[in-house]
């Protein structure tokens, strides 16, 4: 590989990215072998979906916080690069939220609604407070991207979207953690499974954190790719526009010089 070219980033892929393959590969195998079925669940075998569902939910929140952080930084310094970073972080967060919703819906059918014995369309959506909360979060960030696509001027779009993203980032933990745990709502979601020592067996805890780490790596990787791609595309477009302007200037100038 010609790593001695003019660009410093012509080298290989970072080590941590290579490590994701064995890490997530072992999660895929260990979650079905080493971490056994949980007999206290209604459907013991499908309890393993927590290795996919819970990391998605946790990481989506982290990515929304990241979007909020870059949005705040944009509001402070007005650097449009932070707008792109916030947009891409929100995108990754939204994908993870949708995945958490889908895995959660499957979980809900299997654990709360009698699994495959219920009609095929039943049990996925139960209006559990946490399901309501995640739906609101999805709507917030759908609206965020709707706002992005309907303002044309870049600086104004960046500022308006940043304000909305900050509101969203503040609401996410409120919706995920405060509202569902109010005594007036009854959630079927278990509480304190992750935070307490008694919550999970050692095997479950190990595989769970491995999976969280792996998904963190994959989401970070995809975020990095999105941001780098957006920056490259921006630079290419800017150069093309400049070139176009030069051509236009030339076209205006030519008759003057020739005459």
């Amino acid at each position: 590989m010609n790593s001695q070219t003019k660009k410093p980033n012509a080298g290989g892929v970072a080590l941590w990215k290579w490590l994701l393959l064995p890490l997530m590969g072992s999660v895929a195998v260990l979650s079905y072998t080493w971490a056994g079925a949980l007999p206290e669940f209604q459907s013991p075998e499908t309890a393993r979906i927590i290795f996919w569902h819970v990391p998605h939910a946790i990481l989506s929140m982290i990515w929304f916080f990241t979007a909020g952080f870059f949005s705040l930084r944009l509001l402070k310094n007005g650097d449009l690069k932070d707008d792109t970073r916030a947009e891409k972080a929100a995108e990754v967060g939204l994908v993870l939220t949708v995945l958490a919703t889908i895995t959660g819906a499957v979980f809900s059918k299997m654990q709360w609604a009698g699994g495959l014995n219920s009609p095929w369309y039943e049990g996925y959506w139960q209006w559990d407070p946490k399901q309501t909360a995640i739906l609101i979060v999805i709507l917030i960030f759908f609206a965020y991207f709707g706002l992005r696509s309907s303002v044309d001027e870049a600086h104004r779009r960046a500022r308006l979207c940043a304000v909305y993203a900050v509101i969203g980032a503040v609401l996410v933990p409120v919706l995920y953690y405060t509202l569902p745990h109010l005594p007036i709502f009854s959630s079927v979601h278990p509480t304190k499974v992750i935070s307490t020592r008694e919550g999970m067996s050692p095997e479950y805890r190990t595989v769970f954190w491995m999976s969280t780490l792996g998904f963190l790596g994959f989401s970070l990787w995809s975020y990095q790719m999105q941001v780098r791609f957006a920056f490259v595309a921006e630079r290419i477009l800017a150069r093309r526009e400049n070139a176009g302007a030069e051509v236009r200037v030339e076209a205006v100038r030519r008759p003057v010089t020739e005459s």
Binding site: I136, V137, I140, A143, G146, L147, R156
Partner: peptide, 15 residues
């Protein structure tokens, strides 16, 4: 946002 009133419902509803 340029007076796009259709944005009001999606932006305000989740809040």
């Amino acid at each position: 946002a340029g007076g796009r009133t259709y944005l009001m419902l999606p932006l305000a509803f989740p809040i």
